[in-house]
Simulated assay, not measured.
Amino acid sequence: MDMKLFTLDEANVLLPVLKQELYKLQALIDEIDDRYLELQTIKAKHKLSAETRETAPDPYFEQESQLDFMRMEAELQISNFTRKGVLIKSISPGLLDFPAILEGEEVLLCWKQGEDQVSHYHGWNEGFMGRKPFP
Rank of each mutant, 00 (worst) to 15 (best):
M1K: 06
D2M: 14
M3S: 05
K4Y: 03
K4M: 02
F6V: 11
T7G: 09
T7A: 07
T7L: 09
L8A: 12
E10T: 04
E10I: 00
A11I: 02
N12E: 03
N12I: 12
N12L: 07
N12S: 12
V13F: 10
L14S: 03
L15M: 03
L15N: 01
V17E: 06
L18W: 04
Q20N: 09
Q20V: 10
E21C: 11
Y23T: 08
Y23Q: 06
K24N: 01
Q26N: 07
A27V: 10
A27I: 09
A27L: 11
L28G: 01
I29A: 09
E31M: 15
I32F: 05
R35I: 02
R35M: 01
R35Y: 02
Y36M: 08
L37D: 07
L37I: 09
L37P: 00
E38R: 14
Q40P: 03
A44G: 04
H46F: 14
H46D: 05
L48Y: 12
L48I: 12
S49N: 09
S49Y: 04
A50R: 13
A50F: 07
E51Y: 02
E51L: 04
E54P: 01
T55Q: 09
A56V: 04
E62Y: 11
Q63P: 01
Q63F: 05
Q63H: 08
E64Q: 09
E64N: 10
E64M: 06
S65G: 12
S65M: 13
S65A: 14
Q66A: 11
Q66N: 11
L67T: 03
F69M: 07
M70W: 09
R71W: 02
M72R: 15
M72S: 13
A74F: 06
A74T: 08
E75H: 10
E75M: 06
L76P: 00
L76T: 12
I78W: 03
I78K: 08
S79V: 00
S79F: 11
N80M: 09
F81W: 04
F81M: 01
T82A: 11
R83G: 00
K84M: 08
K84F: 03
V86D: 01
V86L: 01
L87P: 02
S90H: 13
S90R: 15
S92A: 10
S92I: 11
G94E: 01
L95M: 13
L95C: 13
L96A: 03
D97N: 03
P99E: 07
P99N: 05
A100I: 05
I101T: 15
I101D: 10
I101C: 08
I101W: 12
E103K: 15
E103C: 06
E103W: 05
G104S: 08
E105L: 12
E106P: 08
L108A: 02
L108H: 02
L109K: 03
K112C: 06
G114N: 12
E115V: 06
D116T: 14
D116R: 13
D116H: 12
V118S: 00
V118I: 09
V118D: 00
S119F: 07
H120D: 05
H120V: 05
H120K: 14
Y121L: 03
Y121Q: 00
Y121G: 00
H122F: 05
H122S: 07
G123E: 00
G123I: 00
N125T: 14
E126N: 13
E126G: 11
E126L: 11
E126I: 08
M129H: 14
G130R: 01
G130W: 03
G130V: 07
R131I: 01
R131K: 14
P133W: 05
F134Y: 15
F134M: 14
P135K: 13
